[in-house]
């Protein structure tokens, strides 16, 4: 199950945010989208999740065009947004049941899935706790558990580690990698932090709305004769982290 982006451009009025993006994600792998703030990552995610309407180009997921078959596409997508979208006044369970209902799952259908996902993230004891009382790391985990509730085949994560301490960031990153391995999940992880990328990840470097490079991190480093992803990023964009 993969995402195929063809000739995608998007502008906010006269400001071009994305320019002729072409990209194919690797199935069942951890795909990283690397770019500084303002590169166009969130715009790309908004287009992938249909929050923005396509202006030109096309996105297809598992062969279905996002514009023509939105329902089929959205069923296969799980999304974790950059800003938290949990309802702070509701409990973890209430937030998860709400998401399940939006995907047509009754409470009876959702209950075992919620237990399964929360157990996976070691949050089963927090079911009846208000989200407001959870720390940032736990909230993020709840959001990922929520995104996986309807068993999507592709998980989009827009800077999911923003605002988290290094240890939590690392564990979250490892967790998603594990899911890719065990569940054949295709993850698309947007970040501006180089340390979240590993050498065998498919990396797409987005800068000022353009794709500068897209291949595995190791291949890209080899092609551009860079020691690591950080120096590759610097040499391609001229931006220091």
């Amino acid at each position: 199950m993969s995402i195929d982006i063809r000739n995608l451009s998007f502008s906010y009025g006269s400001l071009l945010a994305l320019e002729d993006i072409n990209l194919t994600l690797q199935e069942g792998r951890f795909n990283a989208l690397l770019g500084p703030n303002g590169a166009g990552k969130s715009t790309l995610f908004a287009l992938l999740t249909r929050l923005y309407a396509l202006q030109s180009g096309d996105i297809s997921i598992a062969g279905h065009s996002i514009a023509q078959h939105p329902a089929q596409v959205m069923r296969k997508l799980g999304v974790v947004f950059q800003q938290s979208t949990l309802d702070l006044d509701l409990t973890v369970a209430q937030n998860l049941y709400y998401h399940a209902a939006l995907h047509g799952m009754s409470k009876r259908q959702a209950r075992p899935r919620i237990s399964e996902q929360l157990a996976r993230f070691d949050l089963q004891d927090r079911l009846d706790e208000k989200v407001r009382h959870l720390n940032g790391g736990h909230r993020r985990r709840v959001e990922i558990a929520r995104a996986l509730l309807h068993k999507p085949e592709i998980l989009l994560l827009d800077e999911p580690s923003v605002g988290l301490d290094p240890a939590t960031r690392e564990s979250l990153n490892q967790h998603i990698r594990q899911l890719c391995q065990t569940e054949q999940l295709t993850a698309f992880w947007a970040t501006h932090l180089m340390e979240e990328v590993q050498s065998d990840d498919l990396v797409t470097i987005l800068f000022k709305g353009k794709v500068l490079a897209s291949d595995t991190a190791a291949q890209l480093c080899q092609q551009h004769r860079c020691a690591d992803i950080s120096s590759l990023f610097r040499s391609l964009t001229g931006v220091t982290e």
């Binding site: 999740t49 089929q72 997508l77 800003q83 979208t85 939006l102």
Partner: peptide, 13 residues
């Protein structure tokens, strides 16, 4: 509402 519209709009309905 804390991004709740985003959650609503990514529903396949």
């Amino acid at each position: 509402e804390m991004g709740s519209m985003r959650v609503l709009l990514i529903s396949p309905m």
